[in-house]
Design a protein around this nucleic acid. Structure first.
Ligand SMILES: [Mn+2]
Ligand SMILES: [Mn+2]
Length: 296
DNA sequence: GATGTAG
DNA sequence: CTACATCAACGCGCT
DNA sequence: AGCGCG
């Protein structure tokens, strides 16, 4: 095989560029690399300064898949890491070259923590909505609007994105960071409120067998050790879906997670920008403080 | 996909 | 040399 | 005190 080198911040050696990662629609490793190059300005803004977990499918999405949190041995010297106790090197992605290096290893998904390495406090509230019945998107959609409307009454504007799988995630950007102790309190409180008000649709039951066919408002997913699929990450799904921030009006109009894929998201973002950062004015600490106080 | 290690 | 295993974690709220 | 969950 002739060696293929992609020039980024460093030259990245690419192996098996024609490896078919997705069958239908067909997506080769090279096509995935091209997607990442195009989307890097947006994707990287959600990966930088955070701890990253990868999902790798070296033999395509039908093959064996596994999570990876640590830099593999033998990585080139341009690959950064965060050295942690025990000598383990946690994955950090700051530039295109690193993105491409991991993509060459068969990485499909990039998951990121909510807070940054440089600050242990999140600058966002997050609500992970997981349908029990993965085919029941209508119920997830409803729950997302319940969460939005509840937040709205508290003067907290929110933005929604598809996870790229079967769920949705709702975010409240904050002007200033707040401690997880506080953000978790608020997220838990709102999750329980939504469950209480729409008990036939939403649940916060941690035990799967108690959830029935309701949507799990996964408040525990908002925490210092948890990650969420990054905006604009491809998912290892048959359709090569992408976790995509959308307008509430699009959700109202009946859009579906499968509408956003590796094929069409780059054009969408080129046209409309990153809705994750542009569609909502961050809430102030004062609004949050009010929220916290009223709850105690 | 690449590495480390056991056979 | 080939074959095979490994590739993440905890935290943490609840029963 | 142990467990189930993502
Ligand atoms: Mn989810
Ligand atoms: Mn979840």
């Amino acid at each position: 095989m002739q060696p293929l080198i992609l020039e980024a911040e460093a030259p990245v050696r690419i192996t098996h560029p024609d490896k078919l990662l997705f069958v239908d629609p067909p997506v080769t490793k090279l096509a995935n690399l091209e997607y990442l190059v195009q989307m890097a300005p947006y994707l990287l803004s959600h990966l930088r300064d955070r701890r990253i977990t990868l999902v790798r499918c070296p033999h395509g999405i039908a093959g064996h898949r596994f999570y990876q949190r640590h830099v593999p041995s033998g990585a080139p010297s341009y690959i950064p890491y965060r050295e942690v106790e025990g000598g383990k090197r946690e994955i950090v992605i700051e530039d295109v070259a690193t993105l491409l290096f991991y993509a060459n290893l068969g990485t499909i998904e990039f998951h990121a923590e909510l807070h940054r390495l440089s600050d242990p406090r999140p600058r966002v509230l997050s609500f992970d909505l997981d349908p029990s019945d993965t085919s029941d998107f209508e119920k997830v959609r409803k729950t997302a609007f319940y969460v939005r409307d509840t937040l709205s009454e508290l003067d907290l504007p929110s933005v929604v994105k598809t996870s790229g799988a079967s769920g949705l995630q709702v975010f409240v950007p904050l002007l200033e960071p707040i401690a997880y102790e506080d953000s978790r309190r608020i997220v838990r409180f709102i999750a329980r409120y939504v469950e209480g008000r729409w008990p036939h649709i939403a649940t916060t039951a941690r035990l799967i067998k108690e959830r029935g066919d309701k949507v799990y408002v996964d408040a525990p997913q908002h925490g210092p050790t948890r990650t969420l699929i990054a905006p604009y990450s491809v998912r290892a799904t048959p359709l090569a879906t992408v976790s995509t921030p959308i307008h509430w009006s699009e959700l109202e109009g009946g859009c579906r997670p499968q509408d956003f894929t590796i094929r069409n998201v780059p054009a969408r973002v080129a046209q409309f920008g990153d809705l994750m950062t542009e569609s909502v004015a961050p809430a102030s600490a004062a609004t949050i403080a009010k929220m916290l106080n009223s709850q105690r």
